[in-house]
């Protein structure tokens, strides 16, 4: 016991800290090389401004309040669109996973719609909604719908039938069977869908904001292009990267908390 303690304690103590550092080594190195290349004139600042200039531009926009306002607008659009599209996708996934009738009725239609690239609908969406909020929400919701629908459906269909039979033998009602067997069994797959959907959510939003918007990060980048403010353009791109990473981390935390039973999450 004491031997095991003395061996495992320092490891569990050290690992997370090292892990936390390792993942930032490559991004920081890239920024350092970039800074050196800009300062020495190896890369002209008209092509790519130095990281310090980008940071400065960010600081100015932060002081004017413009940055926070635009990030907030984009974040709000992303979340609301995700919630709407995600819940509809989840609902269809549940219905078609649990009911043969529902699957027969809707799955073929949904598969056909899925094969239309949703960004191809932008001209139509602009004609329908103009460039106000509902256009962006519609596109994000549509983009997010499919990964969540497909993975929820897949998760429910692949729940071990032996476990379902076991639940029935032990007298579980339909509600209990869903709550205790089917839903927990489908959860790992649902999370895969959520992480795919988060990627699509940013992609859709940025494209939509770049083409038709009067606020948000995509709009900020397009405005900056008009005035040749290349540092602001680069800043917007970096903020996308950070927000994407943030959304992914949030879903990982959630995944870890709800799937603690899963062997893949018991390593440490």
């Amino acid at each position: 016991m004491s031997l095991i303690d003395s061996v495992s304690l320092p490891r569990s103590f050290r690992l997370p800290r090292v892990d936390g550092l390792i993942q930032w080594i490559v991004p920081l190195a890239i920024i350092a090389i970039w800074q050196v290349a800009s300062v020495t004139g190896f890369v002209p600042t008209r092509v790519l401004p130095a990281p310090s200039d980008v940071l400065l531009a960010g600081w100015k926009l932060l002081l004017s309040g413009e940055l926070v306002r635009n990030i907030w607008v984009s974040f709000w659009r992303a979340s609301i669109g995700f919630l709407i599209g995600g819940s509809i996708g989840f609902a269809f996934g549940l219905a078609n996973g649990l009911s043969q009738l529902s699957a027969k009725l809707t799955d073929t239609t949904l598969q056909m719609v899925r094969n239309v690239p949703h960004l191809a609908l932008i001209p139509l969406v602009i004609l329908w909604f103009g460039i106000d909020e509902s256009a962006k929400l519609f596109l994000v919701a549509l983009g997010v719908f499919f990964p969540i629908y497909l993975n929820t459906l897949h998760g429910i269909r692949t729940v071990d039938p032996q476990l379902i039979e076991m639940g029935r033998i032990y007298g579980m009602t339909d509600g209990e069977l869903f709550r205790r067997v089917i839903f927990p069994g489908a959860l790992p797959s649902i999370f895969v869908g959520i992480r795919f959907a988060l990627g699509i959510m940013w992609l859709t939003l940025i494209v939509a904001e770049t083409i038709a918007a009067s606020s948000g990060l995509g709009y900020m980048a397009m405005q900056a292009r008009e005035f040749m403010l290349i540092d602001v353009v680069v800043l917007s791109i970096l903020i996308y990267a950070l927000l994407g990473k943030l959304a992914d981390s949030a879903s990982r935390v959630l995944e870890r908390a709800t799937l603690s039973w899963h062997p893949a999450f018991q390593k440490r």
């Binding site: 071990d160 032996q162 476990l163 039979e165 007298g171 205790r180 927990p184 069994g185 039973w261 899963h262």
Partner: peptide
């Protein structure tokens, strides 16, 4: 046929039926 997402004791409790 144990529920992987339920602790050992909760798995045994499943056997109590109603």
């Amino acid at each position: 046929r144990l529920l992987p997402w339920a602790r050992v004791l909760a798995n045994v409790e499943v056997g109590l039926g109603r």
